[in-house]
Amino acid sequence: MHKGKGMKFVGDSRISAEKTSKIPKDYSEYPGRTEAFWPNFLLKEWLAGAVFLVGFLCLVLAHPSPLEGMADPTDAAYIPLPDWYFLFLYELLKYQFASGDWIILGILVIPGIAFGALLIAPFLDNGPGRRPRQRPVAVGMMLLALVSCIWLTYTSAAHVDWETRAEQNKPIPPGESVVDQDHPGFAAYENSCLSCHGGELEGGAGPALVGTEHTKEEIMDIAVNGIGAMPADQFQGTDEELEQLADFIIETSEAAGE
């Protein structure tokens, strides 16, 4: 660094008027087979980046990002699930020692210790050795944490039927409600079916009725006697109302299919 009097500046600024050489420094005495960062190594890095980008764009093109139906706070049948990288926390809170009276343990103590330890890891693992074998405790703890996170995420995700879930929560195009609320069968639908099959027949606790393959007679039978997980006697009314209900479901389903 030049200092003192006799220095020349550009105007009244602090920038030296004397040009330094633009020739790169000589690193030939640097040990090992080194390589200049610019442009040699950067080119390799960018080639790797370009390959990565192509892969990433393929992923994006192959899997359009999902969008579910507009948030409906009254939808009691919806089972919330966080994004995958929070699943391990979500699953942790299902364990007895991490919920109920022990909730503090689940939301503060365990994650707090884990992430706190991660933050101050250099001070906990402060020996001089860098090889994993030289610090078995730190490496062991990390492997344990890693395995538990993967295990928690896996158990959480394994419970979920992702395809049905995506199918049931498909967005309904705005302003295209197919439900004719003046239909004589709508009242019966609202009373008996809506809580499980949704206000737009899009499904919820029960399957979607839009695009149903059942005939009118079958629907009338299911409404009274149930099917699969659906209990019997969901519909309690006159035969005429039952017929209107089945008409309503079939007509709405057809209207939605158009």
């Binding site: 507009m70 948030a71 699930l81 967005p171």
Partner: peptide
């Protein structure tokens, strides 16, 4: 995005 997933999560 304010869809169901977002809201409930």
């Amino acid at each position: 995005p304010w869809d169901n997933k977002a809201y409930f999560a």
